[in-house]
Design a protein around this nucleic acid. Sequence first.
RNA 1: GGAGAGAUGGCAGAGUGGUCGAAUGCGGCGGUCUUGAAAACCGUUGACCUCUUACGGGGUCCGGGGGUUCGAAUCCCUCUCUCUCCGCCA
Length: 423
Amino acid sequence: MITLSQIRENPEQVIQRLAIKHIDAIATIHQILDLDDRKKTAQKKLDDNLSQSNAIAKEIGIIFKQGKAADADLLKEKSANLKNVAKELSSEFDRLKEELDALLVALPNVPHSSIKPGRTAEDNEIIRSSGEVFTKEAAPLPHWDLSARYDLIDFGLGSKITGAGFPVYKKQGARLQRALINFFLDQALAAGYQEIQPPYLVNEASAFGTGQLPDKDAQMYYVQLDDLYLIPTAEVPVTNLYRDQILKVDDLPVKNVAYSACFRREAGSYGKDVRGLNRLHQFDKVEIVQITRPEYSYRTLEEMVQYVTGLLEKLELPYRVVKLCGGDISFASAMTYDMEVFAAGQQKWLEVSSVSNFETFQSNRMKLRFKDETGKTALAHTLNGSALALPRIVAALLEDNQTAEGIRIPAALIPFTGFDFIK
RNA sequence: GGAGAGAUGGCAGAGUGGUCGAAUGCGGCGGUCUUGAAAACCGUUGACCUCUUACGGGGUCCGGGGGUUCGAAUCCCUCUCUCUCCGCCA
């Protein structure tokens, strides 16, 4: 969530930036400032009251030690009166604090100054494209036809044992999937990331920390019996590893990579690009997470984009880098780049990675701080990105490398698959 | 799932209901000594909120929440987590 000091220091700027995300925050921001003032006043009153009570308690302690217990009665009465007042002051303070927090938690992150105020994905800015979009076949097939032809993925079987959106990978399809996971992890390791294997279920505090709660609770599967959420991305457990921590400067940057299955309910998205692997309830993803000092976070963001496009180049996939506009950027993000690959069979660009800088939005929620060389503590910046999401990569690999004889495997992947052709 | 024990500062580990934000040790930081380092010695070392231009105050925090009391790290209730034993089991 946005920090109070951010709002106090420059409320106009916060309002203007939120307008880029198409949020009219004028009333809310003024309400926040007003509540904050009232909260402070209430706190001062309460603190003064408690201070008096503390003094009296100490005095009574001394009297007791001197063995003059009877003399304490008057003070006791005085203290009791103070306590009655304190109760009211305290509940007033709590009420204001709750009201204030509720407003703060509901506000999305302030976008970076460079973010353009577009409405939809149509308005996103294409930063760069990798060369030509190739189509070797005259009439390339979509991956769902290819995976049926070569028996790689069985959607019907997944529906039978679970439901729609839970495909079963088979034979070379399953091996390709495993090869990609290993390839991505090895690449990340070589780039200096530390490997993590996180839990796939998280508690409420974790889901809140990265911003899934309370905003996107309909997106997560919830296990009611144990009050746990299935992770929609490894970002949630891997970032929350550092919740309530004060890191040393030497610990930064934290660079973690994790493979995990991801679970998304995708409520409300039925009928929209849901064919084949395009949108699933369960999918595999390798995620990179970084925690940096504020002054380095945007450099890190660019570096992460470079890293991800490097992967796409090794996979020989045509891609483009898209910078999201205000209307398309997520609740928690200050800046996001999407990487898209071209799937020849569908003649469509598919989003395979989303790399974001959250600045202090997540770290403020989870109290993730670092102590600089002068001994001052400050909120760290958090970033993450898919590197990469498997299903759409598989879709593009199948569609873009199809030939009449079968499907070619890119050279970089062959050591991991153990085969160079799908027949 | 059943029975028991526990949760204190970066770590280890004391703590009688009263001046305890908390002994002590280790670690960290600064200094003395040294050509330099180590050792030794001395000092210092939590987070958050808030008042004040400043100097400097006040408040909260001993796993979370609630209660008893003039006063709680210490007593009571409750939740969570950890450990030990038993049961079940990949």
